[in-house]
């Protein structure tokens, strides 16, 4: 499958098959996440594979946005001290978030190639997530990506809003279609 095929095939999935994801595949996804760029090559990004069923169950309880039955998840988070030391406040407050997004995108695209599907998840309690996973105070959790095998009979994906497809050319407001 080409990278472009995977990108255009990706949709958020919230219904999964009741089967675990092989650890080797989760490791591949985590490596894909860490292959994404970081500002100034600063090593502030942390990636955690979560596949213990009891831990997933606990996360679901503190994450109102974890609406699916995905059996695994990958958390992308930032060591804020490393980010600030390496890249200043820009690194801590801006670049690291962008880089976490890039990492999550890599996961979601690589997942397609592996026959998996994903759902980005931000609707969770930061305090709760850190407590469940023993994440220290100097870290900020950025995004949880649910991972699983998509259920074949899953409901249709969400329609993109028209403004979600805006592409400009050379100047703000000048559409590529003009």
């Amino acid at each position: 499958m080409s990278a472009l095929d995977a990108i255009f095939k990706r949709v958020t999935v919230r219904h999964y098959e009741d089967k675990p994801v092989e650890f080797s595949k989760l490791v591949t996804l985590a490596r894909a996440a860490q292959k994404a760029p970081t500002g100034g090559n600063t090593p502030y990004r942390r990636v955690m594979i979560i596949d213990d069923p009891d831990t997933i169950a606990m996360i679901k309880k503190i994450a109102p946005g974890y609406l699916s039955n995905a059996p695994a998840a990958i958390l992308i988070y930032t060591d804020l001290e490393v980010a600030e030391k390496g890249l200043g406040r820009l690194g801590r407050d801006v670049c690291s978030l962008i880089d976490s997004g890039a990492a999550a995108a890599n996961i979601s695209i690589a997942a397609i190639e592996l026959g998996l599907a994903t759902c980005f998840t931000k609707s969770y309690s930061e305090v709760g997530m850190k407590k469940v996973l023993d994440i220290p105070d100097n870290c900020r959790t950025d995004l949880l990506v649910q991972v699983g095998y998509p259920h074949p009979g899953r409901p249709r994906s969400i329609k993109k809003k028209p403004e979600g497809n805006i592409i400009y050319h050379n100047r703000h407001g000048v559409s590529i279609n003009d």
Binding site: K61, I62, P64, S125, V127
Partner: peptide, 13 residues
């Protein structure tokens, strides 16, 4: 218990 935790985290959200 789970439901209470859902309500509290939803409230924070």
């Amino acid at each position: 218990f789970d439901y209470i935790l859902f309500l509290l985290t939803a409230a924070r959200g």
